[in-house]
Design a protein around this nucleic acid. Structure first.
Lengths: 123, 123
DNA sequence: TCAAGTAGGCACCTTAAGGTAACCATGGAA
DNA sequence: TTCCATGGTTACCTTAAGGTGCCTACTTGA
């Protein structure tokens, strides 16, 4: 077991794990949106442009398993369900917010890179 | 065309685009590693634990297309190739470094979430 | 003459991610 | 009594991501 230098992007590197967690399509959006307060699935769906019912529930289930989201059911009719962040979930808001803030201030550069990528894919 | 509120995670949202860019498995690691200085493919491969030859070249080609990485060939024998960041690439280091720094300070929480996810996948 | 290092291409395969569409249950309103 | 809203589930399908393995070309040193 050779020592791992600081520069190495090794398997147990937290950075790498964090990027892996956040690379599930709807995860950052859901966590960020939930950081605005507990919300019902309908509202969440409305805020996450393009998400399907299936992906919404599926991602929320995953986040529950991860210990990041809590599901609360109010036993009334019609059914009332609310999702909120756990304390672990609240922590995960931080890196997303960092990226979010940076992205807002650097729209131009992101747009360039994103555009180049799009162009190279279709051609 | 209804107006888009600040809370909406819409398709053209830079945050969303940025996450999409960074969710390619080897992209953050490559950009971050290249931020330590221009490097030959052999060295890059050594630093990115677990990357295969194919994925290394493939990801580098993509990053070239995105305008983030530059490939320089020195016409000598044996062949000498060096990869470096463009100025656009340098900019993309910032959000990665932000996440990296946060990840270093919050290893515990990341490990928890990551562990929970692993556990829920195998069971 | 043959292996080794350097850089990379190509064919192929497997899995997982994401999406669509149809369906279920409930009870109150029209 | 039929329909709607709510909050899902399920089956099915398509694509893309990532990986393995083997091949190329070039030259130098053993």
């Amino acid at each position: 077991m050779k020592p791992i230098s600081k520069e190495e992007y090794d398997l147990k590197c937290s950075t790498r794990q964090l990027f892996e967690l956040m690379s599930e399509k709807w995860v950052p959006g859901l966590i960020y949106t939930l950081s605005l307060g507990p919300q019902r699935p309908g509202k969440l769906a409305g805020r996450l442009q393009g998400i399907s019912k299936k992906m919404l529930t599926q991602t929320l289930r995953n986040l529950e398993d991860w210990g990041v989201v809590k599901r609360t059911v109010y036993d009334v009719v019609p059914p009332h369900v609310e999702y909120s962040l756990t304390s672990l979930g609240e922590k995960m808001v931080e890196p997303i917010a960092l990226v979010h803030d940076w992205a807002q201030e650097n729209r131009e550069d992101i747009a360039k890179v994103f555009g180049n990528r799009l162009a190279s894919k279709t051609s």
